[in-house]
Design a protein around this nucleic acid. Structure first.
Length: 407
DNA sequence: TTTCCACCGGAAAATGAGGTCC
DNA sequence: GGACCTCATTTTCCGGTGGAAA
């Protein structure tokens, strides 16, 4: 009971402080990646070219397909979103029928879901499962051939679709265009990875890559200007010094000119300053926010892991301390013991090996294949990448893992 | 040079839960 | 109601791997 009173008191204090304390942000939402600015700096050339290509659809004419690529945070999605919204507006203004579909292939997940989303965007009712992919595509194609309304399809993170499912869907889409001269179907593929083109059929590639657009990383100077532009509307005046902005731009510029990262750093630094009751963001806040972003990312990753992956991590932490790297066979022995006792069953060694692989991709562990010759064979060894204390703290949010650590 | 260890990891199949269609 | 579908997860199978030992 005492704890409930204490918790309520703490939360009450936090909320009161937030309401009565100094305000640093004017409009924090402008610093989130979801926000698309009306005026995208240093991307005029791309906006003009994309706008020009899309304008053919307004006139009911065929347009070239386009392939856009560039590193994350270089403005690909923002520019596309801006041009699409203006195109939609203009279409309404001049009473021009136009279908527009903007799908993130990674979020959609599967080929079926991408096809279903396309079909839904031209008003076909598609169940989330139960139909064959081919059937969904056939319905989509029929409707498109019947309506003969220009259709602009944007497939963001197209590499996620191609690498997993091949280019059948893209081939099908480019074929529709060739089937009927009255069909105006424009496809824009967006990717972070230019190498994905290697997996594509040359016929699809020649059709999709009629036009190409490259988004170069922002330079530190450009990043600075972008930050100043956003600070004007997101923060109260005089809250951020030029040294703070330069540091933020330099950190983001040193990676790959990622504007998203620069805005993230600024937002987290601002939140820290506001929490401490300050109306000034300091250079130290920017330095601290870098570590804070990484830490938060790790916490979120661990929280979202399935139970068996958490059990693998727990087994790594429970292994007696050694000076050398841990061998997966020893961790598997511990894992089977804990999983049987606390989850009721354990996964096979093959599946366990995949979970270890996934944990290394997520950056939680460092995985290395070592060879110990005829005596020891080929073995995967692992090492924790993040501080043990942090991982343990997140795992202990769940009772069963806390119990294991308390043994 | 060959053998062998102790796995790795790709591919295919199985499973079970969601669904549609006729 | 049975045939057939997707999808995520897991299992099964089996060839591949690289370096120490024979």
């Amino acid at each position: 009971m005492k704890y409930i009173v204490e918790n309520n008191q703490i939360l009450d204090d936090i909320f009161n402080k937030a309401l009565s304390g100094p305000i640093l942000f004017k409009n924090k939402s402008l610093l989130f990646p979801q926000y698309t600015p009306e005026n995208i700096l240093f991307r005029n050339e791309q906006i003009i070219r994309l706008g020009y290509l899309c304008s053919s659809l307004l006139k009911g004419q065929k347009s070239s397909n386009l392939f856009i690529y560039g590193k994350p945070g270089t403005g690909k999605t923002a520019v596309t979103k801006l041009v699409l919204s203006k195109l939609k507006e203009k279409g309404k203004e001049v009473n021009s029928d136009l279908y527009i579909s903007n799908i993130n292939c990674r979020s959609a997940g599967t080929e079926y879901r991408v096809t279903a989303a396309l079909a839904r965007d031209i008003n076909i009712d598609i169940p989330f499962t139960g139909l064959a992919s081919k059937e969904v595509f056939t319905r989509f194609e029929k409707k498109l051939l019947k309506d003969k309304i220009p259709f602009l399809i944007v497939l963001d993170e197209i590499d996620a679709l191609i690498s997993r499912y091949g280019d059948d869907l893209l081939y099908g889409l480019t074929r529709i265009n060739e089937k009927d001269p009255e069909i105006q179907l424009m496809i824009i593929g967006i990717s972070n990875d230019v190498r994905f083109k290697e997996y594509m059929d040359p016929r699809v590639l020649s059709s999709l890559g009629e036009e190409e657009m490259i988004f170069k990383p922002y330079t530190p100077k450009e990043l600075e200007n972008i930050l100043y532009d956003r600070i004007k509307s997101a923060f109260i005046p005089n809250s951020i010094s030029s040294a703070t902005v330069s540091l933020c731009a330099a950190i983001s510029g040193s990676e790959h000119g990622d504007a998203r990262k620069a805005l993230d750093l600024l937002r987290v630094a601002g939140e820290t300053a506001e929490r401490e009751g300050r109306t000034q963001v300091l250079t130290q806040d920017i330095k601290n926010s870098q570590g804070l972003i990484d830490q938060n990312r790790i916490v979120e990753i661990i929280r979202s892991l399935p139970a068996h992956s958490k059990m693998v991590l727990t087994s790594i932490l429970k292994h007696p301390p050694t000076t050398s790297r841990l061998k997966t066979m020893h961790i598997y022995a511990l894992y089977t013991q804990y999983a049987d006792e606390y989850l009721g069953w354990h996964l096979t060694a093959r599946r366990f090996s995949s979970l270890v692989h996934e944990l290394s991709i997520l950056g939680l562990i460092d995985r290395k294949i070592e060879n110990f010759g005829r005596k020891g064979g080929r073995v995967t060894t692992i090492l924790l990448e993040s501080p043990e204390k942090n991982i343990r703290k997140v795992l202990c949010e769940e009772e069963i893992f806390e119990d294991i650590f308390n043994i």
